[in-house]
Design a protein around this nucleic acid. Sequence first.
DNA 1: GTTTCATATATAAGATTCTTATATGTAAGG
DNA 2: CCTTACATATAAGAATCTTATATATGAAAC
Lengths: 110, 110
Amino acid sequence: MIGSGIKRGTAELAVLSVLQDAPLHGYELARRIEQQTNGALRFTLAALYPMLYRMEQQRWIRGTWETSANGRRRRCYRLTPAGKKKLSPLQREWAELFRALQRLTKVAHA
Amino acid sequence: MIGSGIKRGTAELAVLSVLQDAPLHGYELARRIEQQTNGALRFTLAALYPMLYRMEQQRWIRGTWETSANGRRRRCYRLTPAGKKKLSPLQREWAELFRALQRLTKVAHA
DNA sequence: GTTTCATATATAAGATTCTTATATGTAAGG
DNA sequence: CCTTACATATAAGAATCTTATATATGAAAC
């Protein structure tokens, strides 16, 4: 059955998905999520940073401090093997949730 | 853009969808949601009742006390016109969220 | 030069929501 | 009687989200 966390877990799927591609820091992560969804999905940074902490504690991502060319320090997150492994079941869970909701509205319509 | 409430609003869509069909009381609502999604979606009653309160305060549903044939009192909820009107945009929002998440994982895959 | 915007991370306070556990009570079946 | 199904409700604590704020650099504009 669909985990209860799923109701809140939009961000996790989004973050893991985007990190599949390349390691990124928080600010850029937020921007990419917004861009790649045409603005449909948007996370405030105040919500995003604590999320990244949580995901790091769960070992899905790992952050390292880096200094960019322009001298700014930033925390660069990359997917861990565990995070990679988490991704496909998460995707499946979301798909299942969506199908369940569709079924509900359809059954009700009928 | 997708409202932030959407991340939590699974229940709302589910409840409104099921109530489209017929007025129902909480306990039965929970059962139908579970049945109609083949167990994929399940809400505990302790989570459901406060939700129904909230939805009633928002005027999406209206509850009336009824006494069933077997003498049990129960609160029967039915969709209000406002709730009906809320339903299709909510569905659209969810579809958009899903498309956005799919886009994210696909873009990342490419 | 100084104001402003984009970059970048972080935390606090308050509100909301979720989970787990518990309370209450009826009815039916064994 | 005892258990299962029905039916609603609340409390306590955990988790989460929102809004606001703090800090600091680099670049561009004026």
